[in-house]
């Protein structure tokens, strides 16, 4: 299977997973896609763009008076704020605009509307790949909490359930409630000898009939338990190996 096919498979898998979940909290500005345990703002916006194939106008809101309006088609930003049609050459400027919008935002809401017009011929827009190339999305190697947040956001689409527990008593949960309930019972840390720095990452695979595997990422003060689709494990291993 090619990487492109695998990307499509993962995207479809994520969309189907989201459909199986309870609806995200909605406000007057749309549904909440970042905040209250959801993805980081930048990751959430990029994901929303990447999952929009049919022509749509996505309006992202951060707070009461800060909005970002994007015309999307084929997973590319065709226009922002009603301006001229974008192309790959505009990727850096577009990325900077999105990054500035996300700065300081604690929650992002999304409202999606059907676009009145499809992209005209020759309007190629800016893809998420173009944006990522311009964004400084990789935290510094020594910034362990940021690396973990980044890996968590990246692997969330592969997870059936996540329980993220901090030693201060804060627990965030996402995904299928029955699996979250099982993961919530876990509080010990894996005693693997294969550690890197302060991070321990271990995966358990059950009987062949089990459709999920269990990942525990443990750092001082925090433990993350995830139930993962077995077919997505390789990607998760790659993501978490980069932490620490």
């Amino acid at each position: 299977m090619s990487d492109a096919h695998r990307d499509d498979e993962h995207r479809l898998h994520h969309v189907l997973q989201q459909l199986a979940l309870p609806p995200e909290p909605a406000t007057a500005a749309g549904r909440l896609i970042s905040g209250s345990g959801a993805d980081a703002p930048l990751a959430a916006i990029l994901r929303a763009i990447d999952e929009t194939v049919l022509p749509r106008v996505l309006t992202f809101s951060a707070g009461t008076d800060s909005t970002l309006r994007c015309e999307i088609a084929e997973r590319r930003i065709i226009r922002m704020e009603g301006g001229d049609a974008l192309s790959t050459a505009d990727a850096a400027q577009t990325a900077a605009t999105i990054e500035a919008f996300c700065a300081g935002a604690s929650a992002i809401c999304l409202r999606s509307e059907i676009a009145t017009a499809a992209a005209a011929a020759g309007e190629v827009g800016v893809s998420v790949g173009d944006l990522r190339a311009c964004l400084d999305t990789e935290p510094a190697a020594g910034d362990l909490p940021a690396l973990i947040d980044c890996a968590l956001a990246e692997s969330a689409s592969h997870a059936l359930a996540i329980v993220d527990r901090q030693d201060d008593g804060t627990t965030q949960e996402k995904g299928q409630s029955a699996l979250c309930e099982r993961l919530r019972r876990m509080d010990s840390t894996p005693a693997s000898s294969e550690t890197s720095g302060d991070v321990t990452r271990q995966i358990w695979i059950g009987a062949p009939s089990e459709r999920f595997a269990v990942l525990c990422v443990s750092v001082p003060g925090r433990s993350i338990w995830m139930a993962l689709d077995v077919e997505q494990l390789d990607d998760c291993i790659d993501i978490w190996a980069r932490v620490g």
Binding site: R182, L183, R185, M186, P190, S192, S193, E194, T195, S196, G197, R201, Q202, I203, W204, I205, G206, A207, P208, E210, V214, C216, A227, L233, I237, W240, A241, R242, G244
Partner: peptide, 20 residues
């Protein structure tokens, strides 16, 4: 993990430890 998550008395069939 076996008891609470996989809900079985058997040990997991596999384990993976991820190093950098």
């Amino acid at each position: 993990v076996s008891e609470h998550v996989f809900q079985t008395q058997l040990a997991p069939a596999g384990s993976i430890s991820i190093g950098s």
